[in-house]
Design a protein around this nucleic acid. Sequence first.
DNA 1: ACAAAAGTGTTGTTACTACACCCATGG
DNA 2: CCATGGGTGTAGTAACAACACTTTTGT
Lengths: 227, 227
Amino acid sequence: MTPSEFGTLDPRIPVVAVDVTVFTLLGSELRVLLVRVKKRPYTGVWALPGGIICSDESLEEAAYRELAEKTGLKSVYLEQLFTFGDVNRDKTRRAISTVYFALVNAEGLELKTTEKYAGIGWFPVKKLLRLAYDHAKVIRYAVKRLRWKLEYTNVAWSLLPRAFTLTELQTAYESILGKKLDKRNFRKKILSLRLLTPAGKMKHSAAHRPAELYRFKTRKPIIVKVL
Amino acid sequence: MTPSEFGTLDPRIPVVAVDVTVFTLLGSELRVLLVRVKKRPYTGVWALPGGIICSDESLEEAAYRELAEKTGLKSVYLEQLFTFGDVNRDKTRRAISTVYFALVNAEGLELKTTEKYAGIGWFPVKKLLRLAYDHAKVIRYAVKRLRWKLEYTNVAWSLLPRAFTLTELQTAYESILGKKLDKRNFRKKILSLRLLTPAGKMKHSAAHRPAELYRFKTRKPIIVKVL
DNA sequence: ACAAAAGTGTTGTTACTACACCCATGG
DNA sequence: CCATGGGTGTAGTAACAACACTTTTGT
């Protein structure tokens, strides 16, 4: 059974959807993945990627499917964020949407879209245009959760390339948390957590001293007080 | 439209339910509210209270309705916990269930049940019997969240009577976290947070020095590192 | 040689842990 | 008067915040 077979019934009967908020860093700016809707009444408006679940997949599988369709990525950090179920969040029918939350390294990543959408792109989280449904609210909530996650877990690995410098890591933290951090204290704290291991290489990027590259020892999500 | 009008369709079409994990302290033991199912194939088995949502209520309203039906309580602490959507979690049909999480003071509270159930009661969270659906898993997850909430927020007020002694508060923490706490450090920390205000009364409970009664200054949920 | 980012320590302050005795009451 | 839980302080330790200069490289 395909998604399109649902949703043709009584508009008061709830339909179950999954949406995904995918975040990445581009030019040390936090961005979210949006798609351009074709269907009325939101034609031309941008929204989070998502859709009705299929009858033979779990919610999480639906979220992974959505993510893979748009980004081609399979093994990324993904977790359930919240389920939005207000009566009039979708003007056309009763829709319950479980929103997932993904973090991605966009380096060399090609976005693809399906017939369903008229476009796809990364949008800065600051000053977002008007979005369809209640998606503006959803993104605000997701950003809050992302900030919390950065401070209390090791998920930052999912935003960065495999190997990265401590300054890159610090910049990621700074641009998402929206505040400057002390270089010495940051490095001391991060290294003392023993989450990182030197990659054994240097990054030579310009006319200045090269930086040591590090990797996360594990890419399993764990809870640690980082800051 | 009433809930019973749903669920008569194709069993592969997802139906949206809300379940509630209601916790309380009875005899300084953590307990959860369970109801006894009548319907096959879970006849006689205990489960979390819950049901299909109505077409004109939000998820949260459905959770409040469920809670009020069973406990008569209206203004309690309630928040969304998680949405469970595995394909075979309900043997009879595809059911997506958003689970809410409530904390209640059970003092002088009368449990009521509806036609739908064969019984209702408070069950110790330790050594639970077999439960219907995936509700054992749901409760384990909810207990984890409860422990986190106690350590990082002020929600403890919702488990206690309006006025309580510091020892009662400490006992609540100890029985939920499952460990002893140091009396002096606990009191020092709690009072330094300035969440409590003396109720101006004493609790005379037996042949020993009476204890000062306190109240929470606010019953709005806030995030504070308590322990 | 200079511009530009990498890298590195110390000190003061604050929060946390561990620990033992006297107090007020009811029976 | 005694059994019971209520109430209190201190000292050592660990985590955190604030702060500026030297090193290494490419051009």
